[in-house]
């Protein structure tokens, strides 16, 4: 955002003579508009890609008709359909919380975009608590999910909401520990500092944390935990169709349902982008750096999420808790101790 402010004041005549709050407000509005554009466009592409990936993995074709070429307009049509659908609120639902919940869930995902380092100067705000901020703000989504589950006044929704909350809270701990193994050698929580620490090295990729012994394992721990945090298979028991209908958003339709879907895909992107920032060198690349490299890495990690979803079966609840508390958590503690030992060497 500082770069945007500088760009505006250098290139727009008389920008410096504007009132000082307005000078800061304009870049803020522009940056938020960019984020909203990303949040609106990414799910459209990602839902289409997911359906295509899923179809080809199962030897099907997927959407082929809408829009002509390989059904490219399918998700746009689906989106318009969602907007036009009747807005239904169950008569026994808690109306205030029912309306508030999708917004709270969406706000949690949207707010995380602030610290994603798309490029050396392409970042909304380089907070010096960057990674901690993402971890903290994502807890907003959990509260929103419980809110949706409770307000629907539906046993499946309530079960889905409570499962989701229990799962996200459990997997947050190994994820944060895995993040710590990167923060310790870098010595900063700022996402830009972490990316800069991975510059250079062998072939321009040698300093990426995924190629270093301790953090390579930490990447696995982080990625597994992040799958659980965004409720993706094999950890998608909060919305297990066969037992819970659709989980916490069972009673939602139309625009409010669309908000949950947007939030889900935004969260998928955010955890992948944080993974790319921490372990895959962020916007560093031996060939071409900047936003393109960052987006490619993030999208590649999103693709792996699709891949796992259409390959693996769903875990049972007890297996899910076993993986978190008895496998990932001890492993991540060992990793943090090793990272600390390497740092003081």
């Amino acid at each position: 955002m500082e770069a945007l402010l500088k760009l505006l004041s250098d290139n727009v005549a008389g920008y410096g003579s504007l009132a000082s709050p307005l000078q800061y407000l304009l870049p803020m509005v522009l940056a938020s508009l960019c984020c909203i554009a990303l949040v609106a466009l990414f799910p459209i592409v990602a839902v289409y890609a997911e359906r295509k990936v899923a179809a080809h993995m199962q030897d099907r074709l997927g959407p082929m008709r809408v829009g002509g070429w390989h059904g490219w307009a399918q998700t746009i049509a689906d989106g318009i359909k969602l907007l036009l659908k009747e807005d239904i609120i169950p008569s026994e639902a808690d109306r205030v919380l029912f309306k508030l919940a999708p917004l709270v869930v969406f706000a949690g995902g949207f707010a995380s975009l602030v610290v994603l380092p798309f490029g050396a100067s392409v970042i909304v705000s380089d907070l010096n608590i960057g990674v901690l901020y993402v971890v903290a703000i994502s807890s907003l989504g959990v509260v929103g999910i419980i809110m949706a589950g409770w307000a629907s006044n539906n046993k499946y929704a309530l079960f889905g909401g409570m499962r989701a909350a229990a799962q996200i809270v459990s997997y947050e701990i190994p994820a944060v520990m895995a993040i710590l193994t990167v923060v310790i050698p870098v010595g900063s929580l700022s996402t830009q500092e972490i990316v800069r620490a991975q510059e250079g090295g062998w072939l321009g990729i040698g300093n990426w944390f995924i190629f270093k012994p301790v953090t390579a394992v930490a990447f696995l721990v982080y990625y597994l935990a992040s799958l659980a945090e965004v409720n993706r298979t094999p950890f998608d028991i909060p919305e297990a169709e066969s037992e819970l209908v659709a989980g916490y958003h069972t009673e939602y339709s139309g625009m409010r349902f669309a908000f949950f879907m947007l939030a889900e895909y935004v969260n998928m992107f955010v955890v992948s982008a944080i993974g790319a920032t921490l372990f895959l060198g962020g916007w560093n690349s031996p060939v071409f750096g900047g936003p393109v490299a960052f987006m490619l890495k993030s999208v590649a990690l999103v693709f792996v999420q699709f891949w796992l979803r259409w390959t693996l079966p769903r875990l049972r609840v007890d297996q899910l808790m076993y993986v978190s508390w008895k496998v990932l958590l001890p492993a991540s503690f060992v990793l943090v101790i090793l990272a600390g030992a390497l740092a003081v060497r």
Partner: peptide, 17 residues
């Protein structure tokens, strides 16, 4: 950030349960 992490992410969720 710690306030949000501990109170919203931890205490509030336990309280809701």
């Amino acid at each position: 950030a710690t306030q949000v992490l501990v109170y919203v992410g931890g205490i509030l969720i336990l309280l809701l349960f």
